[in-house]
Design a binder for these strands. Structure first.
Lengths: 122, 122
DNA sequence: CCTTGACCTGGAGTCGCTCCAGTTCGGTAT
DNA sequence: ATACCGAACTGGAGCGACTCCAGGTCAAGG
């Protein structure tokens, strides 16, 4: 599979995939005799995971570390697991940020609607 | 109230507050005779709102627009309301991204734990 | 009077993309 | 055979949203 299809499968842009490869966030990607990238289904699985991680705010430094561990082989599985567990935990925090923002917005909107007659009229 | 306390009240850094002012995301901030910023409690309310909006991914362009509307007076309230409602809607999307990521992570972690014996061993 | 600490400004640096110019390659049409 | 097209390639510039730093001002305390 070439880069255009890979991009449409994982939701990252073509440029982002190339950037991730250049920045060591991907395992080595094969090339055809024409010099173009060929993505395996395992590569696509990796890209889908990265896409989900970056959409939920994982810094690229962490992705790089994760990729480096992956490339070192199975012995790094416990460490990789730890990394994913830590990210899962950070999602809790994000969820509560969203909830707090929703509450604040609901309040502000109620002020605009006049259903709340207190201050804070931003 | 001066900038250090404002920062600790709203959770933004001092640099970020100055950056927001320079970039027209804040209503005009008063200055003392010493040339230093003095934040009113209304200013703090604004900063708290902005902090919550940026933590949940609102682009600064939208914040700038919101600030411009606010500075134009009460006639822009319907438009400001619309803007907040739109952001509240975008939070739904963020929530589902988090949920999808949580599911994917739960799956990947189960693979590490050996409780799932299929492929996808990243 | 001198130092300290909080603030100021302008500007450079960073992160995570995103866009662009210029090139190469494989395939189809003439 | 050649001319062209679309899709991929590279290196590098640009951008959004901060973040950090050097150098300067000012009010208050020792």
């Amino acid at each position: 599979m070439r880069i255009a299809e890979a991009a449409s499968q994982c939701g990252l842009s073509i440029d982002t995939i190339r950037y991730y490869e250049k920045s060591n966030m991907l395992p080595p990607i094969a090339r055809g005799s024409d010099g173009q990238r060929r993505f395996s289904s395992e590569n696509i699985g990796w890209l889908i995971l990265l896409a989900s991680l970056r959409d939920t705010g994982m810094p690229t430094a962490t992705m790089r570390k994760f990729a480096a561990l992956y490339c070192k082989g199975d012995s790094t599985m416990p460490e990789r697991r730890k990394l994913l567990v830590a990210h899962a935990a950070s999602l809790q925090e994000r969820r509560t940020q969203i909830t707090r923002c929703e509450e604040l917005l609901a309040y502000k909107i109620s002020v605009y609607d006049g259903t709340t007659n207190k201050g804070g009229k931003q």
